[in-house]
C-alpha cells in the first residue's frame, strides 16, 4: 500500500491531475526516504557506518534486520518522519490547490 494516496489528498481538499499526483507521490517518497536515511546516518557510529557500507550487496531483508539491530529507535524514526511529512502536506494543502488552479488557468 502506497504511503500517499489520492484519497488522502482528497480528504485534505487537494485536487490534482494524475500526472501531477504521480510527480507528488514520487517526490513524497523520495523526500521521506532521504530524511529517514539522514536520521539513520545520524544514529550510526563510524564503525556501524563502515559495516553498513560493506552491505551494498545485501538483500532488503538483511539490511532491514541490520537496521533494526543497530539503529536506535529505528521504528520511531520512520514513524515520526512519516508524520512530519504528512503534516507538511496538510499545512501546504491550500498552496497545492492554488498551484493546481494556476496550471489549469
Amino acid at each position: 500500500m502506497a504511503l500517499l494516496s489520492k484519497e488522502l489528498l482528497k480528504e485534505l481538499g487537494i485536487e490534482m491531475r494524475d500526472q501531477d499526483y504521480q510527480l507528488l507521490e514520487e517526490h513524497f517518497e523520495t523526500t521521506l526516504r532521504t530524511r529517514v536515511i539522514e536520521e539513520i546516518v545520524e544514529e550510526l557510529s563510524i564503525d556501524q557506518a563502515r559495516q553498513l557500507a560493506t552491505m551494498q550487496q545485501s538483500s532488503d531483508e538483511q539490511l532491514l534486520n541490520w537496521l533494526r539491530a543497530n539503529v536506535l529507535n529505528f521504528s520511531e524514526i520512520v514513524s515520526d518522519e512519516v508524520d512530519i511529512l504528512l503534516g507538511e502536506l496538510a499545512e501546504n494543502s491550500d498552496a497545492f490547490n492554488r498551484a493546481a488552479d494556476n496550471q489549469s488557468d
Binding site: M1, A2, L3, L32, R68, E76, V78, S79, V82, D83
Partner: peptide, 9 residues
C-alpha cells in the same frame, strides 16, 4: 512501524 510505511497507512 517496523517497516517504512507498512503500518501508518
Amino acid at each position: 512501524a517496523e517497516l517504512l510505511g507498512r503500518s501508518f497507512p
